[in-house]
């Protein structure tokens, strides 16, 4: 598959996932199950964009690692801070 075809296929996938994510709300799931499904879909979409559109797949692993450290820092702050008031 040429790169252009790959990119186009990913665009279609992203479009479908975004629509699907919105429809989850109306699927009658339990609120918390729906919440995790919706957030999970966001992570999947973000991964597609980062890995293919931002070419992380073709960069040295160290670049992905740096971004992961940033993400971990943000998650640590969010989770620990929220836990601290539970």
């Amino acid at each position: 598959m040429s790169k252009l075809k790959l990119y186009t296929a990913i665009y279609v996938v992203l479009f479908v996932l975004a629509t699907g994510q919105t429809l989850v709300e109306f699927a009658g799931l339990d609120y918390w199950v729906g919440l995790w499904v919706i957030l999970g879909l966001s992570f999947v979409k973000a991964l597609f964009v980062a890995v293919y559109y931002q070419h992380l797949r073709w960069e040295p692993r160290s670049v992905s690692f740096v971004m992961l450290v940033g993400l971990l820092a943000a998650l640590a702050l969010t989770i620990a801070a929220s836990y601290s008031i539970l």
């Binding site: 670049v63 740096v66 971004m67 450290v69 940033g70 993400l71 820092a73 943000a74 998650l75 702050l77 969010t78 801070a81 929220s82 008031i85």
Partner: peptide, 21 residues
């Protein structure tokens, strides 16, 4: 650019974290 974006991840992460908190 990547390093700048890594710091931007934390910036937006902290905004989203603030919202969640």
């Amino acid at each position: 650019v990547w390093l700048f974006l890594a710091s931007d991840v934390v910036l937006f992460g902290a905004f989203i974290g603030s919202y969640v908190f």
